[in-house]
Design a protein around this nucleic acid. Structure first.
Length: 422
RNA sequence: GUGGGCGUAGCUCAAUUGGUUAGAGCACCUGGUUGUGGCCCAGGAGGCCGUGGGUUCAAGUCCCAUCGCUCACCCCA
């Protein structure tokens, strides 16, 4: 019986890992520009943390978490809860009134895998803690849009407001009565949702449900004055930054903690997994988790597997591993022995040196050098050892010349490696 | 948890109505150059045809089960 990776767990192998490195590099650069600091968080947390933040009744907490039941700990299904826990634990709200943090890493949810969805998946997660200002909402969305634009990924940004604990309950009551009136016309899932999560009925994919919900009461029309004002200012900020967006009054969030602004970056190129990034405001969450009162927060997460899939669809070259500076081809045991220390000395000078230790023929080693995109090959055989001079071949120009082989003489070799032509 | 599609070499795929020793391309190794890459040529290695059972004179092919992959639903990044 062969041992293989768990269902929904994937290796990121050479040839693919370069794309991930590129993605992370671009993201870090942009997060830097917006003055975010990286925070690295543990993968395991007390189960209680997620139950309280994400919501006891959500699918994630109810049936998708990897939990060590005996130890009451859980592998994080998302990053926000962990990040807020760290924020509170280190009293970061004291150090700086507004904290801008990001984290990148794996998350775990026990779901059935499909395109763009794995059991171990990776997110880039960005959070602003301590500001209620709608400009921050707009700024975050603008940053997400900038990142996706930089990556060449085209998406649409959909925005909505979920209201707050002041105005949502009243709306919810109206919605439930609207749904109840036409319950018979809705699909089975929606019948279930009507009691578990009525807001979810709004974004059902079944056409007949959509039709039924077209004239449903809209969240936007039932926002309290502060929420309506906040939402207006968010949109004004987006316009000021020329961020293209559209309002989606049917957009709902899955996690309990969201309030006011919510948004999703949507693609049409990933099958069922339309959202490559999503987030929103969670003004009560810090307090819920034991932090100070009146600690607003907002954040979003991007699904890295989904971004990688989209980058792969572009079929651009994101650069494989760096080319080898020098391939040392030793002929026979003596030649290899002669090149061994030289390779080490050049590596200490930060050159990328490859060499074959398997005693293969020179022809075979030339092939290896070619495959590794080596700029130079240094050939060392018995004749070279005898004369103390090796043959340095420029693989591009096919020119060859003699160079001193002694480790003490590498200073003479380095100028050749620095310039690809000589 | 539910439903569809698919499992043949490291990868992408062939194999007639069931019919001899299961093939190709790419990749890999060796040689064509007693010490020189790409292109070309020749050769080689690599498969319990996912697994188990059944039908049959005969199964990669048909049937059943099982495992895995995949897409979709639910849910979500």
């Amino acid at each position: 019986m062969k041992i293989q990776a768990l269902k929904g767990f994937k290796d990121i192998v050479p040839g693919e890992v370069e794309l991930w490195q590129y993605l992370e590099k671009v993201a870090r650069e942009i997060f830097e520009c917006f003055n975010f600091s990286e925070i690295r968080l543990p993968i395991l947390e007390e189960t209680e943390l997620f139950a309280r933040s994400i919501g006891e009744a959500t699918d994630i907490v109810e049936k998708e978490m990897y939990t060590f039941v005996d130890k009451k700990i859980t592998m994080r299904p998302e990053a926000t809860a962990s990040l807020l826990r760290a924020y509170i634990e280190h009293g970061m709200y004291v150090q700086k009134p507004v904290q801008r943090l990001f984290t990148i890493g794996p998350m775990f949810r026990h779901e059935r895998p499909q395109k763009g969805r794995l059991r171990q998946f990776h997110q880039m997660d960005v959070e602003v803690l301590g500001s209620e200002n709608p400009r921050v909402d707009a700024e975050l969305m603008a940053m997400g849009a900038m990142l996706l634009g930089e990556l060449g990924i085209s998406v649409s940004l959909e925005v909505n407001s979920l209201g707050c604990p002041e105005c949502r309950p009243g709306y919810r009551t109206q919605l439930i009565s609207y749904i109840t009136e036409r319950l018979d016309a809705l699909c089975g899932d929606c019948k279930r949702r009507s009691s578990t999560n009525p807001l979810r009925v709004l974004d059902c994919k079944v056409p007949t449900c959509r039709e039924q919900m077209l004239s449903a009461p809209a969240l936007q029309d039932h926002l309290c004055a502060p929420c309506a004002d906040h939402f207006e200012k968010v949109q004004a900020g987006l316009k000021q930054l020329n961020v293209v967006y559209s309002l989606n009054k049917f957009m709902v969030r899955g996690l309990d903690y969201y309030c006011r602004t919510t948004f999703e970056f949507i693609t049409s190129d990933l099958g069922a997994q339309a959202a490559v990034g999503a987030g929103g405001r969670y003004d009560g969450l810090v307090e819920t988790l034991g932090g100070p009162k009146n600690s607003p927060g907002i954040g979003f997460a991007m699904g890295m597997e989904r971004l990688v899939l989209l980058l792969q669809q572009q079929e651009k070259d994101y650069g494989t591993a760096e080319a080898v500076d020098l391939f040392i081809a030793g002929i026979g045991e003596h030649g290899s022995h002669g090149g061994f220390a030289l390779a080490h000395a050049l590596r200490a000078e930060k050159y990328k040196i490859a060499m074959d230790h398997e005693g293969r023929s020179l022809k075979s080693q030339m092939k290896q050098a070619h495959k590794a995109c080596a700029r130079f090959v240094l050939i060392i055989g018995d004749a070279e050892l005898a004369s103390g001079k090796g043959v340095l071949r420029n693989m591009a120009t096919e020119q060859q010349q003699e160079v001193l082989l002694a480790v003490a003489d590498i200073a003479a070799l380095i100028p050749f490696l620095k310039n690809s032509t000589y």
